[in-house]
Design a protein around this nucleic acid. Structure first.
Lengths: 159, 159
DNA sequence: TGTGCATTGATATGTTATAACAAGGATGCT
DNA sequence: AGCATCCTTGTTATAACATATCAATGCACA
């Protein structure tokens, strides 16, 4: 995989293509990417960083798109269910998905320095945890895999 | 690994030996397992279930061991730092560690039916996430690996 | 055109977590 | 013993994260 999130890249193009993929997804599946939802996704994607629901709300309300918590939470709920965004459990925060549409069990690299988040793939069933689950007769439905640490840039800066 | 948590076992003995291990740990490392902390750990261990901080607080305050949130959070903070308990990020809840002392990168199987939690081992560096991290130059400091689903018992009951 | 359903607006509240500061109590040193 | 220090606890207040509920709006399709 890539971890493009930690590298210099043409982020404007990155956002455009991701938004296009998101729109295509919604169109294909009959989901309505309304203005609030669309803008919420753009905000989440505008940096590869985890944003709290209230951070998102602040952005939205600054643009007149709703001022109460449910606005943000509803948008996030929609995006997460649609696979267009993910919740980072370790931070109680949210991040835009960089490859929407692909049915995935995401794993994250989370920088504690700059809060950047890179998305990777896992296969829970093939891990040691998957072995343990099989041995125990446990049926895995959802997995959370998150690693916290320092991204290359923050290793140089703060060490 | 075992996932003893989902199986019938002599839980009284299980708790006794875990508490002994915890005490040994604290003694060896000069940590003070005070009454509140000790009782908090016992409560967390009393079932192999995740307990919210306020659930724990309710137990503690029912026993006259402190009535305000910081009491519970301080105890949990101590236990987690000492490796005697773990936070389940996906639930914002806490669980007693069943093999304290061993320096470990735990992974969890979490039943959404009964909130039971089984603890397994991972090696973040050897996973695909570890590969991704290396490729990206990311330094992993802590990992969160949690799988939600249904334990054997709850598969039978609720399906 | 109207009926139904998804979405949004708004108020209130629930749940999880921490900041800040005062007071108590153990430890170690002289 | 006296005292300093540091860890721990008590308490108040508040911050941060999240949801229940109900009314109003608007789109979609018969």
């Amino acid at each position: 995989m890539s971890a493009i999130e930690f590298r210099d890249h043409d982020h404007a193009a990155c956002m455009r293509s991701t938004m296009q993929a998101a729109e295509a997804q919604c169109a294909a599946r009959g989901l309505r990417l309304t203005p609030v939802r669309r803008r919420a996704l753009e905000i989440l994607l505008s940096e590869h960083r985890a944003l709290g629901a209230y951070d998102l709300l602040a952005h939205l309300s600054a643009e007149g798109l709703g001022a109460q918590p449910p606005v943000a939470y509803r948008a996030l709920d929609f995006l997460v269910k649609a696979g267009l965004a993910h919740k980072i459990e370790a931070l109680n925060a949210y991040v835009g998905c960089v490859h929407p549409g692909e049915d995935h069990a995401p794993a994250f690299l989370i920088c504690r320095g700059c809060r950047s988040v890179a998305e990777a793939e896992t296969s829970p069933t093939k891990s040691r945890l998957g072995d343990a689950a099989r041995a125990a007769g446990f049926r895995i439905e959802r997995s959370v895999v998150e690693a916290e640490g320092l991204c290359p840039a923050c290793q140089e800066t703060g060490a």
